[in-house]
């Protein structure tokens, strides 16, 4: 799958998601993606599995299994959540190169993104607080349903039920 993206600033770029079913070289990082409640001013490789050692606590909140880990002396409590059906997480790497054709007028630069890794779940960590369904990240998943409702083509029977409120139960 290839996506073309033209932003309002006039910048163009491509994102190569490697094809959902193709045998791409993307590494599977499922179970290894962590979202920490801090800003780490570093970008690059690090021996995460040697230092960051999540453990199961046996506690369950909102049906979420609570894990515990420590980072820089802080106690973190987190939970691993699967990404919704039909969605995947991607780790993208940037490739920037100058355009060769003189006819390109938008600064001469284009950006392309390549999939370096994919993942199907993410572990969300809170500092001090237990994870909960009310955490912003989990609530962000609400958007998937809203987006679907907003962008789904309207069918004849949708019109029917909309003009007859109460005829069909919706939630």
């Amino acid at each position: 799958m290839k996506g073309e993206n033209a932003s309002s600033a006039g910048e163009t770029g491509t994102i190569d998601l490697g094809g959902v079913n193709s045998s791409s070289s993307a590494v599977d990082l499922t179970d290894q993606i962590h979202q920490l409640p801090s800003c780490i001013k570093y970008s690059g490789p690090s021996p995460v599995s040697h230092y960051f050692r999540p453990k199961s606590t046996g506690i369950e909140v909102d049906g979420l299994n609570v894990k515990e880990a420590h980072f820089r002396g802080r106690k973190l409590q987190g939970t691993t959540v699967p990404l919704p059906d039909g969605y995947s997480g991607f780790v993208l790497g940037k490739k920037t190169f100058a355009k060769r054709k003189a006819s390109d007028t938008n600064g001469g630069m284009t950006t392309s993104w390549r999939t370096n890794a994919k993942f199907q779940n993410i572990t969300l960590w809170n500092h001090d607080n237990l994870p909960s369904k009310e955490d912003a990240f989990l609530r962000a998943f609400h958007w998937f349903d809203v987006a679907k409702a907003l962008h789904k083509p309207v069918m004849a029977d949708d019109m029917e039920s909309a003009s007859n409120p109460g005829a069909t139960a919706t939630d």
Partner: peptide, 14 residues
């Protein structure tokens, strides 16, 4: 010492 992780958790970071 480690630039990202600080220290092993034997150390009192505080």
């Amino acid at each position: 010492k480690h630039s990202v992780f600080g220290f092993p958790s034997l150390v009192r970071f505080s």
